[in-house]
Write a protein that binds this DNA or RNA. Structure first.
Lengths: 160, 160
DNA sequence: GACGGTCCGTTGTAGACCGCAACCATCCAA
DNA sequence: TTGGATGGTTGCGGTCTACAACGGACCGTC
């Protein structure tokens, strides 16, 4: 059965509330969820942990932020000793960023804090439901990002 | 089967990415998703549409923001003619906020834009999956908000 | 009926995050 | 060699947020 408009709107509304709540949580949680890591540390260090050395622009792309923002945040992380930069041997303009041991450690404690928090929040979920919703969330995320990337639809909606 | 740690962490990670992506979308979408309504218009006007007249403090509670923020945003909405205020007959300190015809109309066009956007984003979902994920999202949202409201768990995590 | 504590909403202030535009240094192709 | 393209930094302005202080109104108490 194709998607009914009511279901669609209900889903977007739930999504909007979730985003709002998540934003609220991430500002409020501040130190309790990130340890001594600044709030932007997680989304920047995680790609560095997973993919190894990255350029600033690549990191910005992964984190979904402007290069200028990434530049400032990376500078802060570098000052704090979470990342290290070395000149890119292939391009004199660029730097390569690498996560330090301190960065890995901070990521680890932050991961533990998140995990602990999630354990209390999701106390009465069973594994099947959680896996199911995780699958659907990933799919939803992919679709939202795809629709967000293409500039056309909403502008068409405005014009039409 | 109880929630496995891996599932838990996977779910939080998906959730974090979704929130991040959604935030990005809501800033980027700006005019295309809200029409001429300011970005904070939707979460403020919606409770007024659903529940009728509300005080500023009640509205702030519903929107999950501080009263001072709500006060400023409501003032902007009032200047733009989306809401109307009248003194609360029961309490000389308070005002009652009511959404105007213009506000209802703006909400309606905004809803249409959202709906149109959602239609393209969720094009290849079927109704069962969408309803299922909406149900699970609502439950997830409730749990997250509950865990977010209680100050204890994360601080315990930090202390321990 | 006056008074002190409490509550509502507004305003001042400050911080976090974001993106755009201008800029320098470097790269690369013509 | 030279001019356009590119990587990263910085200046600037904008948005959203919360906390603190304040004036005005409310209410239980004396």
């Amino acid at each position: 059965m194709p998607l009914a408009p009511e279901t669609r709107d209900r889903l977007t509304e739930s999504l909007a509330r979730l985003v709002r709540s998540g934003r609220h949580l991430s500002t409020r949680a501040a130190t309790s969820l990130h340890g001594d890591l600044p709030s932007f540390g997680w989304p920047l260090l995680l790609p560095l942990e997973q993919d190894g050395d990255l350029r600033c622009s690549a990191l910005a792309l992964r984190a979904g932020i402007d290069v200028s923002v990434a530049s400032r945040q990376v500078a802060a992380l570098e000052r704090a000793g979470y990342v290290q930069r070395r000149p890119d041997p292939l391009d004199g303009r660029a730097s390569l960023l690498r996560i330090t041991a301190r960065g890995l450690e901070a990521l680890s404690t932050s991961r533990a804090l998140r995990s602990e928090w999630a354990a209390t929040a999701l106390a009465d979920w069973d594994d099947d439901d959680a896996q199911h919703v995780a699958n659907l969330l990933d799919r939803l995320l992919a679709d939202v990002e795809r629709a967000s990337a293409s500039p056309a639809p909403t502008e068409r909606a405005v014009a039409g």
